[in-house]
């Protein structure tokens, strides 16, 4: 009798305790992807760009694949036909923005991600707003004073990285990436997400093909396995070979966006 009473007291105590815990913990259900806000902001930004007739290209690659050199070659072929601006995103420094400005004369600003590995839609929008700000008085070497109208093409050079930038929609109209020959033809297998979201894959440094075991056909096959619709353009940014094809692709896309 004594024992059973003790037990029942203990059980009652335990019951009381667990009830107390339940009462003292409030649960707020969220069930929401952390990317949801960014995806919404990106869609809103694309809507704005469509209204203004501004084509935003998100250019991604690993560090050292030749993004900046490719951009200089491409911009110099297009700058007399359309208004171009460049946003350089890096963790630190402004070497790329200066290089682009010096080599092409087009407006170029540097975005710092403050240690982050990618740009998101909000940061991209801040960059676009900065582009729209009036500039300080033009320096003598500047090609032409800035007018009030928006550019036709804004190229966002994303942080050099094949993983994170692929996960964050920047609000760009099209995604492009540059893969360089020394990186190897198996990259589409290793970074499937990056290749599956890109509308165009530029294969750079084809001048060094004889020195590497890079199989161009295999590379195209792997890219199309991830993304059957991707356009593949082999180029050499150093000599300019193939750059015309990329410039033409861009002109066509810009025109289509402005329709």
């Amino acid at each position: 009798m004594h024992i059973s009473k003790k037990c029942s007291n203990f059980a009652a105590e335990m019951d009381g305790m667990s009830r107390k815990t339940m009462e003292n913990v409030k649960i707020i259900e969220i069930k929401k992807s952390v990317f949801e806000n960014n995806d919404r902001a990106a869609d809103a930004l694309r809507g704005e760009l469509k209204k203004k007739g501004v084509f935003l290209l998100n250019l991604m690659s690993s560090p050292g694949s030749g993004k900046t050199t490719t951009l200089i070659q491409t911009i110099n072929r297009l700058k007399d036909k359309i208004r171009i601006a460049v946003m350089e995103a890096d963790i630190d420094s402004d070497v790329d923005a200066i290089k682009i400005k010096e080599a092409t004369g087009v407006e170029s600003i540097q975005l710092h991600t403050g240690g982050m590995c990618h740009l998101d839609a909000e940061m991209t929008e801040q960059g676009l707003n900065a582009l729209a700000q009036p500039l300080p008085p033009p320096s003598p070497q500047e090609r032409e004073p800035r007018e009030g109208e928006s550019p036709d093409l804004v190229i966002l050079e994303n942080v050099g990285n094949l993983v994170c930038p692929a996960e964050f929609d920047t609000g760009a109209v099209k995604n492009a990436m540059i893969l360089s020959v020394p990186e190897g033809h198996d990259k589409p297998l290793k970074y499937p997400l990056m290749f599956s979201i890109c509308d165009v894959v530029v294969i750079n440094k084809i001048d060094v093909l004889p020195y590497f075991d890079f199989d161009m056909e295999k590379c195209k096959e792997y890219i199309h396995m991830r993304n059957p619709k991707a356009t593949v353009i082999p180029i050499c940014a150093k000599t300019g070979e193939g750059v015309e094809a990329f410039a033409e692709w861009l002109m066509k896309e810009v025109a289509r966006w402005k329709e």
Binding site: V25, K26, I27, E29, I30, K31, K32, S33, V34, F35
Partner: peptide, 8 residues
């Protein structure tokens, strides 16, 4: 990559 819930 989803936030399921908050406990207070």
């Amino acid at each position: 990559v989803e936030i399921k819930e908050l406990r207070i």
